[in-house]
């Protein structure tokens, strides 16, 4: 199990080693989450690298990543634990065959650890040989407010109470990363237990670093134009501005099309990689490409 980075600079270098170029403020937040053993709550627009932060963290700490994708109606049975009904019923049949089915004690055993199906949150409390896992609770804003209540006990005490068994406590607390696209506000009670960090769109220099690290085969001149174009596009009035993920997709698309620089025609053809709303695409195609291209060429 590799030791935790000793300083913020060490962590910054380690993240860069995983091709994750973080702002120093984000690195500080991650550093504190590791040192203080607190969950990290990352908020930001889609495609700025929130989920990626957790993946990279797991990779650099060499720990398993446990991911819980949130959705409306997510409940204890899917997120925490479930009883294995089929096995329980078979076990009862077995007891019957052995003539023990009337013994209350034998029946009570079927609500024991042997019949428990562990879901992501419970799994995250178990330490592995590589150390406690990294738990990613992704897009928490997609779950409903009721689900947040389940999380409170886990996030503050790293423990889960199962009525039939008792309290299950983590030997060593997992590294917890929660992400939200902010389609709704998360309750303060949950935020209070976390370190909060808002990931903004990166600056031009930072985005260049990211693109060069993640798309090493792309010509640098093309990368420069692509990043400038994406940066300029974020200044336009769009329903959904492109994130860094879209920039990376776009440059991959342009490389696949053997392009060495941007042109109006190729932009118009590949705009669907950057923008995901018909209204936005229509707006940009309707005369915004030439001025944006001018800015991209610098």
């Amino acid at each position: 199990m590799p030791p935790l980075p000793a300083t913020i600079d060490d962590l910054q270098t380690a993240l860069a080693g995983q091709r994750y170029m973080a702002e120093r403020s984000l690195t500080t937040a991650i550093f504190l989450a590791l040192k203080l053993g607190k969950p990290l709550f990352l908020e930001g627009e889609a495609g700025v690298g929130k989920t990626e932060a957790a993946k990279v963290l797991a990779a650099l700490l060499k720990r398993p990543l446990i991911r819980l994708q949130c959705y409306e109606g997510l409940d204890i049975n899917t997120a925490v634990y479930e009883w294995n009904y089929a096995r329980q019923l078979l076990h009862i049949r077995l007891l019957e065959a052995q003539g023990k089915a009337r013994e209350a004690e034998a029946l009570e055993n079927i609500f024991g650890p042997d019949f428990l199906l562990k879901r992501p949150l419970l799994l995250a409390l178990e330490s592995t040989p590589a150390g406690p896992p990294v738990l990613l609770i992704d897009e928490l804003d997609r779950a409903d407010a009721e689900f947040e209540a389940f999380l409170l006990e886990i996030l503050s005490d790293f423990q889960i109470t199962i009525p039939e068994i008792g309290v299950i406590r983590a030997a060593a607390p997992p590294v917890v990363v929660i992400t939200s696209n902010r389609t709704r506000e998360i309750h303060d009670a949950l935020k209070r237990r976390c370190l909060y960090h808002w990931i903004d769109y990166p600056s031009f220099e930072r985005e260049m670093e990211i693109v060069l690290a993640r798309a090493p085969h792309a010509p640098e001149a093309l990368a420069r134009q692509v990043v400038r174009f994406a940066q300029a596009l974020r200044q336009e009035e769009l329903y959904k501005a492109p994130g860094v993920a879209e920039t990376l997709d776009w440059i991959a698309a342009l490389v696949a099309l053997d392009q060495h620089s941007l042109s109006e025609a190729v932009i118009a053809d590949t705009l669907g990689v950057l923008l995901k709303y018909q209204d936005d695409i229509g707006y940009v195609r309707g005369g915004r490409i030439p001025p944006l291209l001018l800015q991209a060429r610098g």
Binding site: R24, A29, K191, R192, C194, L195, Y196
Partner: peptide, 13 residues
């Protein structure tokens, strides 16, 4: 760094 530490721990919105 001092500013970032305080911000990460204190600012939630």
């Amino acid at each position: 760094d001092v500013q970032n530490v305080c911000r990460a721990l204190w600012v939630q919105h």
